[in-house]
Design a binder for these strands. Structure first.
Lengths: 148, 148
DNA sequence: ATTACAATTGCAACTGAGTTACAACTAAGC
DNA sequence: GCTTAGTTGTAACTCAGTTGCAATTGTAAT
């Protein structure tokens, strides 16, 4: 019985192995970091956390692993509207897509699922005959605390 | 009687002037390019077009002008899912927001307006008490021609 | 028109994010 | 335990965008 794709520990590792991809010491560390992250991490943050586990892990390996995960649709790449530099943030691809709202004052990032959001995607697929692989909906503005 | 914000020629220039911002030779050229563009341009493309009009215009001035327009909410910055490098693309902020669908095979970019899209934004504003300033909805996948 | 000065520009040098070539290493199948 | 294709680390690179600063210029007051 296959584990559900959702909160299973090591699900990224399982997903890669099932695709016949080699599991290395470095990849295991990086996958673990992404899976257990409590917030959206950029490549530099992932590297910093990885180095604490294994000081030999290299920047380039982090980028290569992120590229691998992206190609396999296992992580989503976010901009979060460049609140902090030009880099990208990563999160495990969720079972159901969500939007990201970034507060342009305090930098807080909120996630939001919505039926309407799912329905817009359905509309695009149908009306535009467009086969969706990634849907990135990023909103910038002021969060409830900052708009006061 | 003020001109409508839409298709008025020189609307960007008018908008900047009405905010008390200086109009320079270089800015006029860059604004004109953005206003008359038939597709989404990145900074390098804008520079190349600008240099054809005035060979002295500098890369830095293009970036500074784009920053100015962004800060004033007069242009929107797009990623188009990085089909082509890491750079950004720019378009005049439209009267009504639209999504961008980028074909990951042929690179074509389509725009799409939708009531559902407007309604999701309304839902975010209401349900999350989030004041929206920018909404970037970018979709990647295969267009009708490429999915065959 | 002339002046005055803050805003803007161009240059050069820089930063930060991500990529590439290549030799050394290693996971996984026999 | 071999073998080898896939992976890693290093260093050097590219590309996008930024910064400090001196020279220039738009605009408003005279």
């Amino acid at each position: 019985m296959p584990l559900p794709q959702t909160e299973a520990p090591g699900a990224l590792q399982t997903a890669l192995l099932s695709r016949g991809i080699r599991m290395t010491r470095q990849r295991r560390v990086i996958l673990e970091i992404i899976e257990t992250a409590s917030q959206h991490l950029d490549a530099a943050q992932i590297l910093r956390k990885a180095v604490r586990v294994d000081p030999n892990i290299n920047r380039v390996t982090v980028y290569r692993t992120l590229g691998l995960l992206k190609r396999h649709g296992l992580v989503d790449e976010l901009d979060l509207l460049h609140v902090k530099g030009e880099g990208h943030f990563y999160e495990r691809r969720p079972q159901r897509d969500h939007m990201h709202m970034t507060c342009l004052r305090c930098g807080k990032v909120q996630e939001f699922e919505s039926d309407l959001f799912d329905r817009v995607k359905g509309q695009v697929e149908r009306d535009c005959h467009f086969h969706i692989l990634v849907a990135r909906f990023e909103i910038g503005g002021y969060c409830s605390a900052c708009r006061k």
